[in-house]
Design a protein around this nucleic acid. Structure first.
Lengths: 261, 261
DNA sequence: CATATTGGTTCTTATATCGAACCACCGGTT
DNA sequence: AACCGGTGGTTCGATATAAGAACCAATATG
C-alpha cells in the first residue's frame, strides 16, 4: 500500500488520514499510537485524533487489551458494494468455477486500475498445492500473465503513462528489457493469450486472456495459474484454449450488460 | 450504512469525509456531485474536494463518461487484511464448507461489532434456492438466529448498551416484546443453540451457535440458514446438532490460536 | 437562444486543526 | 519508593487550513 497522494486539490486532513489508514497492511496489520506516529513522522496528537475518528466510524478498532489499533469490520461493508458494482458474483464467478473444474488450477480475475492490476476475484482449485493470491493485490502491469496481457492490449498512447522508467524484477525470469517486453507483448496480441512462467513468482505458470469494455478498451483479464510442473509446455495450448473459451463467455456477458466501463 | 459519528474527540473534516463515503451503498452505489451534495445538504465545493481526495487515493473513482463517482478498487486491498486478521480463510472457511456439505444449506460467520452483528464470511450451498446474504451486512442483535444467539450469551451488564429502546420489526414474526425476547434468550442459553423462523427474513429458518474469545465473551456466531420448507421442525434438532459440532471445532481453533479478542 | 442543469475552480474569511506541553498509567531499574 | 522511559490520552492558544459564496465552462432541454 503506502500510495502517494495526488497533491492536487485535496484536503490535507483527509490526505493525512488516508495515509494513516494505508499503513494497516497485511505485513503490519496492527499499530500502537506512538509506534505509528514514529513510523509516519507525525505528531502523535494528530495521529490520535485521526485514529479515534476512524474508530468512531468502525474503520479501525482498538484492541482493548493491547491498546493497539487495527482495521475494523466496517471495511467489509464496502466490499459487497464494489463487487456488486463489478457484477462479479452473479455471473462471472460461476464461469470461473467452471474453468477451475476444467483445468484444475486456481483462476482469478484482474482489473486494471491506473497503472496497476488489481486482483478482484479468486476461485481456488481443490488441490493441496495451488497458486495463492489475495483479493485486492496490486501489481505493476509488466510482470505476470494476468498483467502483461492487459498491457499487451492497451492503446499505444496509454502505455507510456503506466510503464515506469525501470521495470522491476520480481524473479530472475521477469522481463526487464524494454525491447524484449515489447516483443513479448506483440506475440500476446497476435495469439490473444499470454502464457508466462515464473515471471512474477518463481515456479508459477500463468495463462491469461484480456477482457474489454464496451468501447473496446482493455479493462482486465481472466487468468489461471498453478505450479509450473503441472503445466508443462506441451499442455499449455490446450489449457490456453480453455481459458480463452471462458474468457469469451465472460466477454459476451460484459458486452451485454456493460459492466467495467 | 449511514452510521452516526461518535461526536467525541473527532476531526470534523474526516467525519464529513467518512459520512460521504458511507453514502456509497448497495442501494445507491453511484453519485453525481450535485446530487450527493443535495442529499447530504453539504456545500458542493466542500463535497467536491472530499470526492477528489478520495479519488486520488483510489477509494473512489469517477466514471469518465457519466462523471458519477463510485467506490474504487482500493477498498478491496483492505478486505484481505481484515480477513487475515480474523484468520478466517485458513481454517474457519474449510470447516464451514464441511458444514454446508453436511446440511445442504448456506453457512455464515457473524462477528459482534458494537451493537451490531456483521456478516464476515459466507459459504453458500449448491442449490438454486438458498439463503442469500452479503459480506459486511450489519444487523441489530435482537432479530435472526445469528444475532440473537450473540445477544443470548452476552454479559447481562453489556446488554442495555446494545438494545435500543424499541425493537425494530423486520417481519411479522420478529420478536419486538422485550419480555418475550428475554424468555427466548434464556432458552437459547440453556440449549446452547438458537433456532429462528422468519424473524429477520420471511420464510427463512436460521440455526446458530455462539463463539467465544479467550476471556469467555461472545464475539460472534456460526449459523446455517435456508428456506423454511427445507428445514421443518422435526429436522431442526438434527441440524442443530451438526451446527453445534462444527461450532465446537471452530471454538477449539479460536481457543488455541486466540483470534477474535 | 435562454434556462437550468451539470462538474469544476477561485479567493477571502473564519474556523477547525495543529502541536507543545501536559496528565495518568505501567513495568523495569536502581 | 523514587526514578526513568515507555505507553495512550488530553488541553488550549496560534495559525494554517478548510468552508462556501460567487464564479466558469459545458451540456442538455425547452
Amino acid at each position: 500500500m503506502a500510495d502517494q497522494p495526488t497533491g492536487v486539490s485535496s484536503l490535507k486532513t483527509l490526505d493525512n488520514a488516508l495515509a494513516v489508514l494505508s499503513e494497516f497492511t497485511l505485513e503490519t496489520p496492527t499499530w500502537g499510537l506512538r509506534e505509528l506516529s514514529k513510523k509516519m513522522d507525525m505528531n502523535h496528537t494528530v495521529l490520535h485524533r485521526i485514529l479515534r475518528t476512524f474508530e468512531g466510524w468502525g474503520y479501525l478498532r482498538q484492541n482493548p487489551l493491547t491498546k493497539e489499533y487495527e482495521l475494523g469490520l466496517k471495511i467489509l461493508e464496502f466490499t459487497s458494494v464494489v463487487k456488486q458494482r463489478m457484477k462479479l458474483s452473479e455471473f462471472v464467478v460461476p464461469v470461473m468455477h467452471e474453468l477451475v473444474e476444467e483445468v484444475g488450477e486456481t483462476a482469478f480475475l484482474t482489473l486494471k486500475d491506473g497503472d496497476k492490476g488489481v486482483t478482484v476475484e479468486i476461485v481456488e482449485c481443490d488441490r493441496p498445492i495451488k497458486f495463492n493470491v489475495s483479493i485486492g493485490t496490486r501489481t505493476p502491469l509488466h510482470a505476470g500473465a494476468s498483467c502483461k496481457v492487459i498491457l499487451a492490449f492497451m492503446d499505444e498512447e496509454e502505455k507510456p503513462g503506466v510503464l515506469p522508467e525501470s521495470l522491476q524484477a520480481f524473479t530472475a525470469r521477469t522481463v526487464t528489457e524494454r525491447e524484449a517486453l515489447i516483443r513479448d507483448l506483440e506475440e500476446v496480441r497476435e495469439t490473444g493469450v499470454c502464457v508466462t512462467k515464473g515471471e512474477f513468482s518463481d515456479a508459477v505458470c500463468g495463462i491469461a486472456v484480456p477482457l474489454f469494455n464496451a468501447r473496446r478498451k482493455v479493462v482486465g483479464s481472466l487468468t489461471i495459474a498453478g505450479p509450473g510442473y503441472r503445466m508443462p509446455d506441451e499442455e499449455t495450448p490446450e489449457l490456453a484454449e480453455k481459458v480463452m473459451n471462458k474468457g469469451r463467455i465472460i466477454q459476451q456477458y460484459i458486452d451485454r450488460f456493460g459492466s467495467f466501463y
